[in-house]
Design a protein around this nucleic acid. Structure first.
Length: 135
DNA sequence: GCCAACGTTGGC
DNA sequence: GCCAACGTTGGC
């Protein structure tokens, strides 16, 4: 069973549209220990929801882990890792932050509990509920 | 544009 | 080891 994750990106710096155009992305630039530890826990084939922060504030698509953690080439110091992601498919309907907040099943989601965390795990249930909201 | 939340840094 | 200062994130 693949595990489920969510990554955040400001569309102004890297959007889902750009990601799908690129066809893949090295998820670099994470400089937070907890987020890095989550990156390191990702396995090839794991499912990753792509969230647009600041502008949009909505989950827009599904990605997959194509390469597990390796040293982040953009880091000045050792100890920071990145993974490679590939787009799987866009959500039929994006799931807004407001919709997530309104869903009782998502009240404990890391997105709400730790608003500043940029790479977070999702439970299988949380993932299923978000997909349902996207239908 | 503002501000709350939070992580990091540095002085003690 | 504590805590104030500071910087950053991200929602509003």
């Amino acid at each position: 069973m693949p595990r489920h994750w969510m990554v955040k990106s400001e569309p102004a710096s890297y959007s889902w549209e750009q990601f799908t155009k690129d066809g893949h992305a090295a998820w670099t630039g994470v400089r937070n220990f907890q987020a890095r530890n989550n990156l390191r826990a990702m396995k090839t084939g794991d499912i990753v929801l792509f969230y647009h922060s600041v502008t949009g504030k909505e989950v827009v698509g599904i990605a997959k882990v194509a390469r597990e953690a390796y040293p982040d080439p953009t880091a000045d110091e050792p100890g920071w890792d990145c993974v490679d992601l590939v787009p799987a498919k866009p959500l039929k309907k994006s799931v807004t932050l407001a919709a997530i907040k309104a869903a009782p099943a998502l009240k404990d989601i890391a997105l709400l509990k730790q608003s500043r965390l940029s790479v977070m795990p999702l439970t299988a249930e949380e993932y299923a509920v978000i997909l349902k909201l996207a239908a």
